[in-house]
Amino acid sequence: MTKRTYLPLLTLLLAWPVVPVAGFAEEIPAAANLCLTCHQVTVESDRAVQGAPPLFYAGNKFNRDWLESWLQTPTRIRPAGGFFADHIITSEGGDSIDTASLAPHPSVDSAAAKQLSDWLMSLRPHDQLIAESSEYSPAPISPRLGAMDFVKFKGCGGCHRDTPEYGGVSGPELYTAWQRLQPEFIVSYIKNPRAWNQQSSMPDRNLQDEQIHKLVNYLKSLHKED
C-alpha cells in the first residue's frame, strides 16, 4: 500500500463518528455530563475509584416514574455511599460511616429530569439477562415470615435495611426497592449479582428461583402506596 492510499484512509478514520456501543443510546443529553463525572455509563471500571453505582444498565434496572421524580429531589439510598469502603472511619470501637465524606446527589429541574430519564431508560444492555431470568409473578407473603426469611434465613438484613431503622448499612436500602426497581431486575440481580456488576460486593447465595421470588414478594410487601 502506498503513502497515497494511506492518507485518504487515515483521513476517513479520523473523521468517522464515534460508533455507539451496543445497547446504549446514540445521543447523550447535555445534562448527562453531570452523571458522567461519577457514574459508569459506558463500560465498567474499577468501582473502588468510581464509587457511584453503575448506570450503564439503568433502563434494565429502574422504574421510570421513580427515576424522574428522584432526580428532582434525590435522597440517599446507600447509607454508606456508593462504595462503603471509601466512607469508613476506623477506631478502637469499630468502623463507622464517615458522613462528612458523603456528598449529596445533585438535583435537576423537571425538564432535565425528563430528558435524563428518557436517556437512562434507553440504556438496556442486559435485556438478555432479563429474558433469561425466571418468570416472576407477585404473590402475597406474611410480613412476619418475610422479615424472618430476609433477616435470619437469607441474611440480607446484614447489609440491607428493610425498614428505615433496621438492617445493615453497606448496601442500598431495600424498603424502597419496589418503588425504585423493576421486579425482573431484582430477581435477576439476586440470582447473579456479578452478571450485572462485576464489582458488586453482594454474594451470589446460590438461591433457587422460588427462594428469590419469596424475597421479592417480601420487598413488594414493604412498599407503602403514597
Partner: peptide, 24 residues
C-alpha cells in the same frame, strides 16, 4: 477483603465492620 469482607468484619479485621452493630 476490603471490597467484600470489611463491610461486616471491619477494615482492620476486628469483626467491627459498619454492619456489625446491625447483625444478630
Amino acid at each position: 477483603y476490603r471490597n467484600n469482607c470489611s463491610q461486616c468484619h471491619g477494615l482492620k479485621g476486628t469483626g467491627k465492620g459498619i454492619n456489625a452493630p446491625h447483625l444478630e
